[in-house]
């Protein structure tokens, strides 16, 4: 199978280049990650992140034939040859397919991604109705792979000011949680021309999310709540 892979090692390369590979696959190789491991067995200098190989850890996000996705759950039958692999767009490249995700995590941390509830907890669990719990479905499952934020033009232009789809999905996950007591402060924090309102509903995030989540919808819900609280 043929690959065209983005290569860059800051120690020896003045600038990035594309390297062609043609590797023999085993009949059991099913996913793109399996093929990448074959490539690495031939050329151990190729660097990429990977761990769970089943789409839950979020390590092996990359740009596959122009679209962000996880290598471990991208079926080899679904990709056109030669497969063009590039690092996630918009973030600084450390080496090859490995990007520096600091900016992405900084935005995630900026929304206070933890439950705020200072009331003394009961002896047992806090009660929550199944309906209230259902509000978190489609929000809490995010794996922080960064496919969405690095597919978002608004995040490319303002990664320091715009929270980005992943961070905003997380923000809404806590706003929507009936156990959280900081909704007002969370909304105040996002009421800003950049942090929330740089989202122009381009919806690339929805298109690329490997978990089928919908950050755009979460963002519009935050906006709705803001409008409701203003009137």
């Amino acid at each position: 199978m043929k690959f065209r892979i983005y290569r860059y090692d800051p120690e020896k390369d003045a600038k990035p280049y594309v390297q062609d590979y043609d590797v023999a696959l085993d009949p059991h190789d099913r996913m793109l990650l399996d093929a990448l491991i074959r490539v690495k067995a031939v050329d151990d200098t190729l660097s990429f992140r990977r761990s769970c190989r089943e789409g839950v850890c979020g390590s092996d996000a990359m740009n596959i034939n122009g679209k962000n996705g996880l290598a471990c759950i991208t079926n080899l039958n679904d990709v056109k040859e030669p497969v063009e692999l590039r690092p996630l767009p918009g973030l600084p490249v450390i080496r090859d397919l490995i990007v520096d995700m600091s900016q992405f995590f900084k935005q995630y941390h900026s929304i206070k991604p933890y439950l705020v509830n200072d009331s003394p907890p009961p002896e047992k669990e806090r009660l929550q109705s199944p309906e209230d719990r259902e509000e978190l479905d489609g929000l809490y499952e995010c794996i922080l792979c960064a496919c969405c934020s690095t597919a978002c033009p608004s995040f490319w232009w303002n990664p320091d000011k715009f929270v980005g789809p992943a961070g905003l999905l997380a923000a809404y996950r806590f706003i929507a949680d009936t156990r959280d007591e900081a909704i007002g402060a969370r909304l105040d924090d996002l009421e800003d021309p950049y942090r929330l309102f740089r989202c122009h509903t381009i919806m690339n995030c929805v298109d690329v999310c490997p978990k089928g989540l919908n950050p755009t919808k979460a963002i519009s819900k935050i906006k709705e709540i803001m409008v409701r609280r203003a009137v």
Binding site: L127, P130, D180
Partner: peptide, 20 residues
């Protein structure tokens, strides 16, 4: 320790009575 995880915000599934 499970109650503590719930207090930390872990999104457990719920029964009709609101328990885990």
């Amino acid at each position: 320790v499970v109650y503590e995880l719930e207090h930390f915000g872990m999104p457990f599934d719920r029964n009709a009575d609101g328990t885990i």
